[in-house]
């Protein structure tokens, strides 16, 4: 299990899905949860960074667990998930603040995988009971959702799948961003008179070159 945490932790960081000390992961084993330590670096996890605690009951290890434990617990208690990944993917976070209700991927892969990704918001975000309630409800129906301006929570039967949802969502959001940026840029080019410049003349004729 430690190897899985280390492998996907590294991938999450090096793929730019979270910052050096951001994000957390967990795995459920029966009535126990193994969750990353608060403040741990996902790219550099060691044995001491994986904390075992009860699914329902606190014990002294709550001193060490991720501040999002309350959300992880609520998800496990209300869904069949056995693994959870929570990260702060920048493109998805940015897009969550620019759309209402849901992110609808425009790329083929994202469309097949997600159809849509709900975007919700709460007054407080970190380690919040409100988020816990919301996550437990939404993730009964979806595999991933975005907390507006904060990050994604994704689930799966194993860490790899939860990782996949996070990674794929970020890719779809990147494509969305690039597409919209390019579309806006094209409009700008068209409107700017740049097409009158000598080197841009006959641009439309290049397809017969």
């Amino acid at each position: 299990m430690l190897k899985d945490f280390q492998k996907f932790g590294k991938d999450l960081f090096y793929r730019g899905l979270t910052s050096s000390h951001g994000g957390n992961m967990s795995v459920r084993m029966g009535d126990r949860i193994f969750i990353t330590r608060t403040g741990s670096m996902l790219a550099h996890l060691e044995e001491r960074d994986i904390i075992e605690i009860g699914l329902d009951e606190d014990d002294s290890h709550i001193m060490l667990t991720s501040s999002e434990l309350v959300v992880h617990r609520a998800i496990y208690q209300n869904t069949s998930a056995l693994a959870i990944v929570h990260v702060h993917p920048p493109y998805a976070v940015a897009l969550s603040m620019a759309v209402e209700g849901a992110i609808i991927p425009i790329d083929s892969e994202g469309s097949y995988l997600f159809r849509k990704v709900p975007v919700e918001q709460t007054a407080s975000t970190v380690g919040s009971e409100d988020v816990a309630k919301l996550a437990a409800e939404i993730l009964r129906e979806y595999k991933i959702f975005m907390l507006r301006g904060h990050g994604s929570f994704s689930t799966g039967p194993v860490l790899e799948e939860a990782f996949q949802w996070s990674s794929s969502l970020e890719e779809s959001c990147k494509i969305y961003h690039y597409t919209k940026t390019l579309q806006a840029a094209q409009k700008t080019i068209a409107d700017s008179g740049i097409g009158e410049l000598e080197y841009r003349k006959h641009t439309d004729d290049y397809d017969i070159w």
């Binding site: 014990d59 002294s60 709550i62 001193m63 501040s67 380690g127």
Partner: peptide, 25 residues
């Protein structure tokens, strides 16, 4: 207050078990 609420140490561990939360750890 937001930070105190967000920290598992100040919002969960110490309130629930007091400083004796440290014995087992």
């Amino acid at each position: 207050s937001k930070m105190v609420t967000a920290s598992p140490r100040t919002s969960d561990a110490l309130p629930e078990f007091g400083s004796s939360v440290l014995v087992n750890i």
